[in-house]
Design a protein around this nucleic acid. Structure first.
Lengths: 109, 109
DNA sequence: ATCTTCTATATGCATGCGACACATAGAGGG
DNA sequence: CCCTCTATGTGTCGCATGCATATAGAAGAT
């Protein structure tokens, strides 16, 4: 899956502003492992912020170390819609493959 | 799409032995561009052959430059089945994303 | 008091794929 | 003789991923 984490993070943040550490576990909804590498998550968040898709502010309230609260921007909503189109297309391509693969297997019977 | 060309080439060759140049255009079935980069195709074929998934023999009959005829091996059939599982799973993950994305959009109305 | 664990964010490095350009070469037609 | 089509490759660069590692606050255990 190519950069699949990016649209998932965008969607999760669009649903509800969130922290990086929290997003790490919420990514499991989309089939990411529960042992998800933190590095990937934070790097993706950093890139999205550099692109202007999300914005963050430090949150020092609550216990434990300071954490960044991420929110989606209007630009980010646009990126998310684009990702929706890309993934719809990818889903169609995979579907074509799987259909043809299934046909091939049946012919071998 | 991550390495999506590899299973597509395997499937096409499994359906019928083929030449690289021919496969370049047949890849369009799976949404690859008609201006497909030859480099990627030949590198993928080379890798598959190194992995033992396919075998080739030079074909000097016919007009034009010599060409390699690729055929799938038993190992290659195994790889193809594995790819089928991987892509089924990826398709499910994308489906989850698209469903949730759709839900989010509807809530915004 | 100190040690470990949990929360939370971040960097360093190696590897490998993809995108683009470029190279080589046989065969046929104008 | 040049151009185009067929056919198979290599060179290079950027970037994403995977794995390890660093930093640090806070809470609970001994």
């Amino acid at each position: 899956m190519d950069r699949f984490m990016e649209p998932c993070l965008l969607l999760l943040i669009a649903e509800k502003p969130a922290y990086g550490y929290e997003l790490m576990s919420r990514l499991q909804d989309f089939g990411f492992g529960d042992d998800q590498d933190p590095g990937m998550v934070y790097r993706n968040l950093r890139r999205l912020e550099n692109q202007g898709a999300i914005e963050s502010q430090w949150d020092t309230s609550g216990s434990g170390p300071a954490r960044r609260l991420y929110e989606i921007t209007p630009d980010g909503s646009g990126y998310l819609r684009t990702w929706g189109q890309i993934l719809t297309r990818n889903s169609e391509r995979i579907h074509i493959f799987l259909q043809r693969f299934k046909t091939l297997k049946e012919e071998l019977v």
